[in-house]
Design a protein around this nucleic acid. Structure first.
Length: 115
DNA sequence: ACTTTGACTATAA
DNA sequence: GTTATAGCCAAAG
């Protein structure tokens, strides 16, 4: 048996990000707040940094900053791969920013309320 | 154990 | 609208 000292914080972030419905986006702060660690939005970003190679894959492209800016576009890879992925989901992106961001914004709390 | 970092957010100018 | 500064927490070095 392995020790349970693994950083579950990252794992929790991965789960929430995977729950993001297609065609929707969320913010680091929303995820952090949902995890009960409001203010640790930076941790969410850090978790995303470690999400590469994680299984199942984490749709980190659906996670943007509070301004709808693709803050992690540079981490995804060369070019505008993140932008391409978002557009493929039906999310219009321009100038590395999600258009109508508030319209595509999705809060993990909606899982509890189920709208 | 301490220091530095980091894909953030909010407020102020 | 941008730019600057402070606050914030957890992981990596």
């Amino acid at each position: 048996m392995k020790k349970a000292t693994e950083p579950r914080f990252f794992d929790s972030v991965y789960e929430v990000v995977r729950l993001i419905p297609p065609g929707r986006v969320t913010t680091y702060g929303a995820i952090a707040r949902f995890l009960g660690s409001a203010g640790s939005a930076r941790m969410v970003g850090w978790a995303m940094n470690a999400s590469f190679g994680v299984q199942p894959p984490v749709p980190a492209q659906r996670v943007v900053n509070a301004s709808g800016l693709l803050s992690g576009k540079f981490h995804f890879g060369p070019g505008d791969e993140m932008k391409n992925l978002l557009e493929a989901e039906g999310i219009p992106v321009e100038n590395d920013t999600v258009l109508n961001f508030s319209l595509h914004f999705w809060d993990p709390a909606e899982l509890l309320t189920k709208i």
